[in-house]
Simulated assay, not measured.
Amino acid sequence: MSLSNPEKSSAAKPVTLITGASGGIGSALARALAGTHELILGGRGGAALNALCAEVGGHPLVLDLTRPETFAGVLAGLGRVSNVVHNAGVVELGAVAEQDYAVWTHTLAVNTVAPAELTRLLLPTVRQERGTFVFVNSGAGLSANAGWGSYAASKFALKALADALRGEEEANGVRVTSLYPGRTATEMQRKVRSQEGAEYTPEAFIDPQTLAATIAFVLNAPRDATLTDLTVRPGPQ
């Protein structure tokens, strides 16, 4: 997959790749950036991703985040990439005593290993663009509660990846931000609340559009500033 005539269509705009683009935060971000960024929208494919691409003028990128060995082939010929927003993620709640290696392997693969490999492969072009990596982390990446072991471990590791990358790439002009949202009104949160045996009340959580606006600010911030770590919590009710 490559952008159509990227030299002509993208010369004045940054090219931003978003993973998990058809999810709540990802689709909100795509809509927030439409018109000002060329968009490469990553996902598992299907009607939702195609519809979003048609709506915002984005270019679909079908990725299986459990198979990082396929990424190089998928990204071949991609062209310019200025920014990468690592937004895709999975969660499966459960006590350490109850979750077997398959849950841990899957969670770490999608939430940590896939972002690491995508970063490695996309880093040369992001360096050329002096662009930005945004890692959509979680409050669980700062504090691990009971029942959240596998997910929190993957997000702690994602923080380590971002911190190391920031130190390594500062001299190359690459900016790296970790975003730590609290509970957000998405389908993932609906699943979490179901696993917790609790009611899903979206009005009590952060609106995905709020996080999209936050990420857009990070991407568009003047070059004299790097926003390294941002924690966003639901406002008072």
Score class of each variant (00 low, 15 high):
M1N: 13
S4I: 14
S9H: 12
S10K: 08
A12D: 14
V15C: 01
V15K: 07
G20E: 01
A21L: 09
G23N: 10
L29S: 04
L29D: 08
L33C: 05
L33P: 01
L33T: 06
G35M: 05
T36P: 02
H37W: 04
E38C: 09
E38Q: 13
R44N: 11
L49W: 01
N50K: 15
A51N: 14
A54K: 09
A54Q: 11
V56W: 06
V56M: 07
V56L: 05
H59G: 00
H59M: 10
H59F: 11
V62H: 08
L63D: 02
A72H: 08
V74D: 01
G77W: 08
G79V: 06
V81L: 05
V81T: 07
V85K: 08
H86A: 08
G89T: 09
G94W: 08
V96I: 15
A97H: 04
A97E: 15
D100A: 07
V103K: 09
W104P: 10
T105H: 14
H106R: 15
T107S: 10
L108A: 10
L108D: 02
L108C: 10
L108V: 13
A109C: 03
A114M: 12
P115Q: 10
L118C: 05
R120S: 02
L121H: 09
L122I: 09
L123W: 12
L123G: 11
P124N: 05
T125S: 14
Q128K: 15
Q128L: 12
R130P: 00
R130F: 02
G131T: 06
T132G: 02
F133V: 03
V134S: 01
V136C: 06
A140Y: 03
L142Q: 12
S143P: 00
A144N: 01
A152F: 02
S154Q: 04
S154M: 07
K155E: 07
F156L: 04
L158R: 06
A160I: 11
D163S: 13
A164H: 10
L165D: 02
R166T: 05
G173T: 10
S178F: 00
L179H: 02
Y180K: 07
P181I: 04
G182A: 02
G182V: 03
T184V: 13
A185S: 12
M188Q: 14
M188E: 08
V192R: 06
Q195M: 15
Q195E: 15
E199T: 13
Y200D: 10
P202S: 03
F205V: 02
P208S: 07
P208K: 04
L211R: 10
A212N: 01
A212K: 03
A213H: 11
F217K: 12
F217E: 05
V218G: 04
V218H: 06
N220S: 15
N220K: 14
P222L: 07
A225Y: 12
T226V: 15
T228P: 00
G235M: 14
